[in-house]
Write a protein that binds this DNA or RNA. Sequence first.
DNA 1: ATTATCTATAGATCTATAGATAATGC
DNA 2: ATTATCTATAGATCTATAGATAATGC
Lengths: 233, 233
Amino acid sequence: MSAIIERANGQTHGKVPKVGRPRANPRQLERPPEEEILVEAARLFTSKGFSATSTREIAEAAGLRQPSLFHYYPKKERILETLLRRVAEWTLDFAEQLDRVDAPASAKLYRLLYFDVHSACASPHPVHAILLLPEARPPAFPAYWVSDRRLTELLRDLVARAISEGDLRATDVALTARSLRSLAASTATWATDCEGRSPEAIAGHVVGKELRALLEDPDRLDSLRQQALALKI
Amino acid sequence: MSAIIERANGQTHGKVPKVGRPRANPRQLERPPEEEILVEAARLFTSKGFSATSTREIAEAAGLRQPSLFHYYPKKERILETLLRRVAEWTLDFAEQLDRVDAPASAKLYRLLYFDVHSACASPHPVHAILLLPEARPPAFPAYWVSDRRLTELLRDLVARAISEGDLRATDVALTARSLRSLAASTATWATDCEGRSPEAIAGHVVGKELRALLEDPDRLDSLRQQALALKI
DNA sequence: ATTATCTATAGATCTATAGATAATGC
DNA sequence: ATTATCTATAGATCTATAGATAATGC
């Protein structure tokens, strides 16, 4: 999870505040407070839900008193908004890098799905599950849903191109894209139950199943997988 | 949705109360109040979330004042508990009938998945999405999770038998069962976005994709589908 | 002077209970 | 007498604001 949430802040460590009144419960900080808040909020939102998580719980988990939270996020909703943005950017950034690579659409499709599902499984807490919170549904957080639509369209284009390149079977492209888009979030909801399986194993299984179903020649799955994972991003 | 929620109450219509103080806002009732409450609660829980839905909203939607709700459900949680039980029973009952039919495991697997996903898509509101509410996660509602485990084990057995019968490819059976179990709920989250597609089309697409991926011979999908839908339940 | 925090609290909920009330049933 | 509803409200939240305070920085 941390990786996804912190992506935009690789360099910001050490930004731990020196000025300001000391905390009531001092502790060693590894991240700036606004990042600590995001990490704890993500954990609480996915396990208890957005509305069922109080700002007090988030604050105490981040080592602060409840009103101090509002110094960093002026509304509770802004925390969820920030998390949604980070999750969307995490995948969108990868998708944009992938776009610049020259490779068959089927390989790119595999690689993008694998990246998305693997991220969802590898997070210690299933951050991607925040995408399924009823409180995050449209029309709330329109900026997130713009990114989501972009990603769905990207998947649709990859599927359509892979079909015209002869690698995938003809199928309902829009429906396929919509269901592929939900793959990472839905895998995140159960991946933590599967003890003993690595994120790589789960993502490989899930994405492999999708592509085997879509491939014109299912026996090509193994070579497609190798080709996809060999792409230099 | 109504079908799933009301399954246990086919005969109970007309149980509209004649005794008791009249309502402040009288209206024509089609269902007994406890059923009206379930239908409205299901709609509100899936669209706004459990904690974000107040007992006042549910009550007013059902034509009652807020405290009157507690005549039927002594705690707000009991409403969600009842919904979870109905959704679980809906699929479990079908699975038990299916169990008594003599047919190849692959056909039964297709039929069970189709039933589950089709129910999820056919509901005017995605009731199955309540299974994804963070508030419904274990360890809350242990009775529901017992049913859920039963269903996952049933899927696992069907997959294992279909493999030993030679219809499905060898694969990680537990992982496959777990991901198949999440199919209906996850489809419910996006099926309503797909205007112009019938529940049959969506369920056929989604379940077809799963089975094509699992089949030893993908070309057998069409005949498997016919065989599955022809089963007399 | 600026900043990050604190304490105190206003104001708006929200769930659940207590007890009254207005029907039907016997 | 029983029942389903109502009104009124207690008690426990919860979000967000106001304003004080205890550090560092200049």
